[in-house]
Measured scan of single mutants.
Amino acid sequence: APRKVEMRRDPVLGFGFVAGSEKPVVVRSVTPGGPSEGKLIPGDQIVMINDEPVSAAPRERVIDLVRSCKESILLTVIQP
């Protein structure tokens, strides 16, 4: 079942996760003590960023979407 995860941007750590460059977009790592800790799990597949589906989106679009979130971000993720 999809999970909705909302995180506030940390001034130092950002959102505190690293996503892979393949499709679908998969969470590779979560920064300890960062905003994503306890919310995202490595292996989570990101299916939506805010209200935009990203399963088939180019990597550049995913990066732009994350960067455009100055304060908070809403991710919809699934464990494949």
Rank of each mutant, 00 (worst) to 15 (best):
G34L: 03
R61A: 13
G14I: 02
G16L: 00
K4A: 01
T76E: 13
G43L: 04
P24Q: 03
E22D: 09
I78N: 11
F15L: 05
D10K: 03
E37H: 09
S68G: 13
L65I: 11
K39H: 12
A19S: 10
G38F: 08
V54E: 02
L65E: 05
V26H: 06
P24Y: 02
P24K: 02
D10R: 03
D44F: 00
P58T: 12
S72V: 08
S21H: 12
D10H: 07
S36T: 03
K23Q: 11
V77I: 08
G43K: 05
F17H: 01
L74T: 13
G16F: 00
V25Y: 07
L74F: 15
T76G: 13
Q45N: 07
Q79Y: 09
A1T: 04
D44G: 02
P2S: 12
E22R: 06
S29Q: 12
K23R: 12
E6P: 06
V62W: 04
V27C: 04
P11V: 05
P53L: 14
G14D: 13
F17G: 01
I49V: 14
L75H: 03
K39V: 10
P2L: 13
P11D: 10
N50F: 07
V18M: 09
D51W: 05
V27G: 00
I41A: 14
S21E: 15
K39L: 14
S55T: 06
S36D: 01
L75M: 13
I73S: 03
G16Y: 00
V30G: 00
V62E: 01
V27T: 02
P35L: 01
T76C: 09
M48F: 13
V18R: 06
N50E: 11
V18S: 08
Q79K: 12
M48I: 07
T31C: 08
R67W: 06
E60I: 05
M7I: 15
E22Y: 13
V18Q: 07
V30D: 01
I49Q: 00
R61Q: 14
I49H: 02
A57L: 15
A19C: 14
P58N: 11
P32Y: 07
C69F: 06
E6V: 09
Q79N: 11
P58M: 05
F17I: 04
G20M: 10
P32N: 10
R9S: 07
L40E: 00
P42V: 11
D10E: 05
E6I: 14
I49A: 03
M48Q: 14
V77A: 05
G33P: 01
P11W: 04
P53D: 15
G33C: 09
S36C: 11
P2C: 10
P24H: 03
P32F: 05
S36P: 01
P80A: 09
P24C: 03
G20Q: 12
R67M: 10
E71P: 05
K23N: 15
R67A: 13
P80I: 04
V26F: 07
D51P: 01
G16H: 00
I78C: 12
V77S: 02
E71F: 06
K23I: 09
V12Y: 10
A1E: 04
R3P: 00
P42Y: 05
P53E: 14
P11H: 05
R59P: 13
V30N: 03
S55Y: 04
V18I: 13
G34C: 03
D44P: 00
Q45Y: 08
I49R: 01
T76V: 07
L74E: 14
I49N: 01
V47P: 01
L75T: 04
A57T: 14
R9K: 12
V18G: 08
S68I: 05
V54C: 12
V47S: 08
V77Y: 01
R3K: 12
P32A: 12
E52A: 10
R28S: 13
G16E: 01
I41T: 15
S21K: 13
A1N: 15
R61S: 12
V30Q: 01
L40G: 00
V12P: 03
P42W: 03
Q45T: 08
I41G: 09
A57D: 11
K4S: 09
F17M: 04
I73L: 13
T76K: 12
V30P: 01
D51Q: 12
V30M: 04
P11F: 04
V18N: 08
V77W: 00
S21T: 07
Q79E: 13
V26W: 04
G43P: 00
A19K: 03
G38V: 03
E22V: 10
V62L: 06
D64E: 13
E71H: 09
A19Q: 09
D44E: 06
P2W: 08
S72R: 13
V54S: 02
I73G: 03
G43C: 05
V62H: 02
V5K: 02
G38E: 06
I78T: 15
P53M: 13
P58K: 12
R28I: 11
C69Q: 12
P42I: 09
L40C: 03
K23F: 10
M7L: 15
V27W: 00
V77D: 02
V25Q: 04
P42T: 10
I63D: 12
R61I: 08
T31W: 06
L74W: 13
V62F: 06
I63T: 10
D44S: 05
P58E: 10
G38Y: 07
C69H: 10
V5G: 00
S29R: 10
V26G: 03
K70A: 08
S72D: 13
K70I: 04
D64K: 10
A1P: 02
G33H: 08
P24M: 03
F15D: 01
N50C: 06
D51H: 15
F15E: 01
R28Q: 15
V25F: 07
V66G: 02
C69Y: 06
G14R: 03
P24G: 04
P80L: 04
K23W: 09
V62Q: 02
E22P: 00
R28P: 02
V12F: 09
R9D: 01
V12L: 14
G43H: 06
V62N: 02
V30E: 01
I41Y: 13
R59T: 12
R61T: 12
R67T: 13
P35S: 04
V27F: 01
A57H: 09
P35E: 04
P11R: 07
R67V: 09
Q45A: 09
P11I: 06
R28G: 13
M7V: 12
V47W: 07
M48R: 11
K39F: 12
F15V: 01
P24L: 02
V30A: 03
M48D: 08
D64I: 01
K70P: 11
Q79G: 15
I73V: 13
P24N: 04
P11Q: 07
P42L: 08
D51K: 11
